[in-house]
Design a protein around this nucleic acid. Sequence first.
DNA 1: ATCCATTATGTGATCGATAACAAGGAGCAG
DNA 2: CTGCTCCTTGTTATCGATCACATAATGGAT
Lengths: 351, 351
Amino acid sequence: MKPTPAGAGPGRAATIYEVARLAGVSHQTVSRYMADRSKLKAATSDKVERAMAELNYTPNLAARSLRTRATYRLLALVPGASPFFPSRMLTGAAATAQDAGYHLDVVALEGSGPERTERLRRILDGGPFAGALSFVPLAGTDLLQAQERIPVVVAGEYDDQMRGQGRMSDGSAAQAIVAHLAALGHRRIAHIAGPQAWPAARNRLSVYRRAVQHAGLEDGGVAEAEWSAASGYAAAQTLIADRSITAIFAANDQLAIGAIRALHEEGRRVPDDVSVVGWDDHPESAFLVPSLTTVHMDLEAQGGHAMKQLLAALKPGGTLPTEAGTAGTRLVLRESSGPAPRAPRETRLEP
Amino acid sequence: MKPTPAGAGPGRAATIYEVARLAGVSHQTVSRYMADRSKLKAATSDKVERAMAELNYTPNLAARSLRTRATYRLLALVPGASPFFPSRMLTGAAATAQDAGYHLDVVALEGSGPERTERLRRILDGGPFAGALSFVPLAGTDLLQAQERIPVVVAGEYDDQMRGQGRMSDGSAAQAIVAHLAALGHRRIAHIAGPQAWPAARNRLSVYRRAVQHAGLEDGGVAEAEWSAASGYAAAQTLIADRSITAIFAANDQLAIGAIRALHEEGRRVPDDVSVVGWDDHPESAFLVPSLTTVHMDLEAQGGHAMKQLLAALKPGGTLPTEAGTAGTRLVLRESSGPAPRAPRETRLEP
DNA sequence: ATCCATTATGTGATCGATAACAAGGAGCAG
DNA sequence: CTGCTCCTTGTTATCGATCACATAATGGAT
């Protein structure tokens, strides 16, 4: 209704001085109102509140940041190379950051070793960030270099430490997968692991190994791969040379897709000859032919959780939240897993 | 005098005053050096340059922004609901923004109508953004409200205006798809369109219509869907009730996956009975069974291009780049498309 | 050599917030 | 009623950059 609300210019945002004048107090009182309104008398607080509302005041972050040396910008490092980085994780993290009054700046970190370190250094120099959340595994030197400046949380690292503990962790789902395959009569299974630089990949591999042993199955081999379907395809080609393997556990859905393709080209049917299970439950996975048995993840929540860890680390008394962030994972049974073919060689149980 | 050696402290960044003192000039000269070094004498410029290098100076953006009222933050609006928003587009845009000295803040815009408008308003009020790049279609009111404050570019809108013009645009690839199907003997084809709020979806639909007519084919129907596989599945169920349709052109790969699933469940083979083509060429699409005929897109480049448009609009004389940003699209032929079954009804050419 | 139009550099004020310190008032014991 | 806290509010300085204006240096033309 009014282009110029009583004191504020047309486009120009109101300042604390204008709010102060309208409220009949000093600018510092307005500043205090924002910092901790409980320290003001109720009457004063009300006056300020009304004035702010009338002028539609919003603080100038540049000015505040200049004075306090605090910055409200966080850095999100996402993989540049991996095209299917789950953007939901990012949006979950961004939403959490925004709710806490921070801005999240996205940077794709790609390339390898030294050039990546250099890029990281340039970014960190470029502007002061309050902290960084990395969805990319950071090598030791990168991480140290970054951390000596600001708090850095690498998504998944924390869960990594909690590896396989209880139902909150990735681990229990991996265990459920192996148990599922064992129940279907599979005796010899293989694993296509993700890049071991990634915590999630290490976690899944380690739980796979333990679960196989625990269930008394034979480990038909582990092939390390990138996260891509192409890489899963190549890894599977190697693994399935061993015809006694009747099930493959892939560390994510893309790898599983690649594995199914490799099996298809060898003329082996899924799941009749070989079962394949994935991980992540991409929205398409239910519609593939065959549809994919996989582990459902709430990626958005995981992104939000990682951000909460970072926010906690930013506070002076910074302690990390104690619960792991992978709650909500669950095994989803679909067509790509089925009974082991014929009579599985039950006699070959001794090592 | 201060605990910081030689002007620059360990944590504390150097200021123009420190640079000025070291260079033996005034702070304003240092400021001018950054603004336009050509206006300084070569000797002065050198001194400043050396001092900056020695102190490892980086400007304090908060201070600059406070004085100039300019802000170096851009807003990226990404869909919150659509989990498979191509994050490469985002990283492409982010990289371009960073090269230009801007920071890109990611916000997921989800929900519908009024609540979304409210959220957008809150974000825009939250802090001054220099501009916004939206990967989400914005409704008229949202857009107007946003644009009265800052320049807004909606990715794809521009290409939308250039619809189907020349080989740079989405259009030619859609035309190539239809021509490809016609060459395989298909006479009656259908289209699963994306949400018509999205420029890319409108574009593909409109070119589909034109190309079908131009190739003298019959339009077997258009079903509008969301971008998801689930939605493609539902849409295809409707379309394939018409058994005379021998090919489906889906507006993206997820839709195509859903369509293939629907056909599979009806006992119809791909491509023997029905051909299916997608769009986007996700990295997995080559490994599906059957692998997907699709249109390859350089999403990263498209994201970068959209950002360039925004950056151009930010400059005072702001004009948009003249070329469309979809160069690099190309048809990729794979297993999901093949010859029309048996003798296509060649006699039914008249309407 | 002198003067003037440029060009190059320096000085002080300013952006909008918080920090540091000072000062006015209320409440209460003596 | 005095004097002393404690609580609330006001005044002035400051963060690090640019802007506006003043001044010094430069280069021709006279």
